[in-house]
Design a protein around this nucleic acid. Sequence first.
DNA 1: TGCCAGGCCCTCTTTAGGGCCTT
Length: 209
Amino acid sequence: MKMAVADSVVVLDFETSGLSPEYGDRAIEIGAVLVEHGVIVDRFQKLMNPGFRISRFIESYTGITNEMLKGQASCEAVMAEFSEFIAGHNIVAHNAAFDRRFLDFELKRANRAFQGECCCSLLVSRRVYQDSPNHKLKTLVSHAGIAETGSFHRALADAEMTAHLWMSMINRIGEQYKIPMILFDQLCELSRVDKLYAHRYLSSLANRC
DNA sequence: TGCCAGGCCCTCTTTAGGGCCTT
């Protein structure tokens, strides 16, 4: 198992055949980046064959076609490999509840499990970027002045841009509140603080510095 | 072909309803 550095996190994104594994939906692509000390140092991207044809809507939405999924490894094989990539790390995702459901579902089918903590960049963004028109990933990337690294709705590109959004929010907190280093656990706590009290919470962190 | 979920969050609220966000 890899040893995680203190200031590290894996940012991940799933493309799936639909919204709910409970209704038979499966992952079709996983993309993830390992961020250490504010720098992307490793990447993981794999298409996976769900064992059935995906809908035209998903083909259009993601750009991933049934033809592209032919001959790809099974979800179980890809997730067994991915479990090694995330071992020992905490994870971040945009609307993390969605990705966490698929992560747990697919890992279970691969006889694996994830033991780390999970934080949602969407919830953090609702507190840090309260001036954004909405909190879709694409809007936030534009709002924060982040360069697009690929096509939206492809797993690795979305994971990379979510990682840059994550770092952008950390930098914004640092600049506004003079907090030189905010910890993963503190960002998780921020995501749970009532939106109206986010400023108070961050000010309290600044006072402790 | 079109549908499915679930948690957050706001307000015309809290004994609720509906939009947002993910695919």
